[in-house]
Amino acid sequence: MEKPGLPPLDVTEFNSSLAWSAGNIVSTTGDMIRFVDALAGGRLLPPGQHRQMWTTVCTEGGHWVPHARYGLGLFEFDKQATGGRTLCGVGGSLWGTWFLAVGTPDGGHTIAVHTNTEGKSWDLTFKLIDAEFGTSIAAA
């Protein structure tokens, strides 16, 4: 684990595209919120592609996000875990960074978290989502 007080690490030359489809994108949390809102709200892709992207499959059994279904690059929490509310998002982790954005399907309400550490557990994530949206994923 890194020690506090170390100088910032310039990652602008770091090629994250070697990690599957990361695409070597460097962005801000605000940009990611706008992206997820447009993606979830159907304003980013043509209707047919939007439907394909949001056609999800179950991820239970230890595959990636617990209590969620996975589509083409995004996930949707099971309504049973959210008290009937639909919440969807994107996320990822790679060497010293972790990002997650979760919001409503209309793109009207989104929370984003970006840390300078890799995600080790879903516990804190679920507590943040529960606090923001009034769900009970952490207890599911």
Rank of each mutant, 00 (worst) to 15 (best):
T59M: 00
I129G: 08
M32G: 03
T55W: 15
T86Q: 13
T59A: 04
G108H: 10
L44Y: 12
V90P: 13
L72I: 05
S17H: 13
K3F: 14
K120P: 02
V65W: 15
K127C: 05
S93V: 03
L124H: 12
F35A: 02
I33W: 02
D31T: 00
G92A: 11
C58F: 12
L100G: 14
L44G: 11
S21K: 10
R85D: 08
W98L: 04
A22G: 10
H63P: 04
P66W: 02
S17V: 01
K3G: 11
G30P: 03
S21C: 10
R34E: 04
P7G: 15
L72P: 14
V11T: 06
L74S: 10
T56P: 08
A68T: 03
S27W: 04
W64A: 10
W20R: 14
C88Q: 06
A81C: 11
L6N: 15
D106S: 08
V11M: 03
T86R: 13
D123H: 09
N24Y: 01
R34S: 06
H67R: 13
A101N: 07
V36E: 11
S27G: 06
W95A: 10
F35M: 02
W98M: 07
N15H: 15
G119R: 14
S93E: 01
S93I: 00
V26H: 12
G73D: 14
G92I: 01
T125E: 08
L87A: 05
A139E: 10
P7I: 00
I33Q: 06
V11Y: 01
E60A: 05
G89L: 04
D10I: 00
D106R: 07
N15F: 15
F126V: 00
L128R: 04
G83R: 13
P47T: 06
G83W: 14
A112D: 07
I111C: 07
P47I: 02
A19Q: 12
L9W: 05
I129Y: 12
V11G: 06
G42C: 01
E60R: 02
G30S: 04
L124V: 04
